[in-house]
Design a protein around this nucleic acid. Structure first.
Lengths: 211, 211
DNA sequence: AATGATAGTTTTGTATACAATTTTGTCACA
DNA sequence: TGTGACAAAATTGTATACAAAACTATCATT
């Protein structure tokens, strides 16, 4: 159908994207043994590009020991701990440096969060965080958080984070603090916001466990 | 000579280690074009394992666009910014949780820092930070810092950080704060310590620039 | 001298073959 | 029933060949 999606990019890149998506959407669930030849046959390419894509996925932590990763509760805590540090700092930076345009966009994200469809809300919430992280002006920080997104996504699939009560209210508070250029407050609010996200995640996971 | 170093590990792993070391010790200086076949010939193996090792080095940021990375001053600042956040947190954790044995080891690092040979001092200083980072109990944090070490090393080569005045005194202050279980103080001291490291690095780099 | 077309060269991407290793299954024996 | 030895099968690691692409150099034309 779409030439772009099957032909133009290199086989390695295609393989990387397909396998990554399969892991993220649960098509390849956690713990699944990864077999090069099997994937090669499925994607209709040879093992060589498959191997390279697997090495990449290894580096990003989506594959460990030839198995699809199965992040634990501890992993989730660790991840949010790092996020709290990096995004807390970013929120402070945003209060100091975020240009007016981006403020507008933040405000719009909140609006969509209140009025949009499920799909739109998820996108807007992600964008909200992304804008703030970019305000850090630190590419290493941006990349580090990017790298963690896959694992977060893996949890979010089951948790449906966008439905958490007060989530948008908290975004709005953060936005207000940034708008008032109150860095310390923005940082604190971001920290509690992420902590609440984590607690919500953990709560859902643990209640699911007793089914 | 040493069978272990040439035979037992896989060709891919050998290649990874050799190329990585060559970059770190300046044998492959920043900006060098990386050519697969050339490396394969030099290491006496085929291109296949070379390619995989290069993908790995790409992921770690030591190779960018088939060239050896040449980190900028901005990169250095970014890196230390992240370190300050993560190691500051780690120092606080260490004050809360570090067991007595590790405290002893920290103290010993300081002793070596005062009395050891250059080589020993460098090792001891690295160990000092490593013990504290491990005290975070957060494997993601540990890995993230690990990943940054190569680039730091790349700078340290020219900067000879171990000779910075007060470095060991600052370590000692941090150690004392941890020993007294004063988390906030340990965190603050670690932050200023790393900031001083960064400033020293930048100073050296900029004075070298005017040669 | 500047441009740009084109042949030649280098380098990368992919497929394939085979060797080495790991895993799996089977069966004899205690 | 359990265990461990071994063969068979599956999987991974590495080398090699060739095709595709990116890069260089040369030279004709303006």
């Amino acid at each position: 159908m779409n030439q772009q999606s099957t032909n133009s990019r290199s086989a390695y890149q295609q393989a990387y994207e397909v396998i990554r998506d399969r892991i993220l959407n649960g098509d390849l669930p956690g713990g699944t043994k990864i077999v090069e030849e099997k994937l090669a046959a499925e994607l209709g390419i040879s093992r060589t590009p498959i191997r390279e894509s697997l090495r990449q996925l290894n580096n990003e932590g989506l594959i460990i020991n030839k198995k699809v990763v199965q992040p634990t509760e501890k992993d989730l805590r660790n991840l949010f701990q790092v996020r709290i540090l990096l995004e807390g700092f970013s929120a402070k930076s945003a209060a100091m440096y975020l240009p007016e345009d981006d403020l507008k966009t933040l405000s719009n994200c909140i609006k969509i969060g209140r009025e949009g469809t499920t799909e739109e809300i998820m996108k807007a919430n992600e964008l909200f965080h992304e804008i703030i992280v970019r305000a850090s002006g630190n590419t290493l920080m941006i990349d580090t958080i990017d790298r963690m997104k896959s694992i977060i996504y893996l949890f979010r699939k089951t948790v449906v984070l966008y439905k958490r009560p007060h989530l948008i209210d908290e975004h709005e508070e953060i936005y207000e603090a940034i708008k008032l250029r109150n860095g310390e407050k923005a940082k604190k609010l971001m920290e509690t916001h992420l902590q609440a996200d984590l607690d919500f995640c953990l709560h859902i996971i643990n209640s699911e466990r007793n089914d």
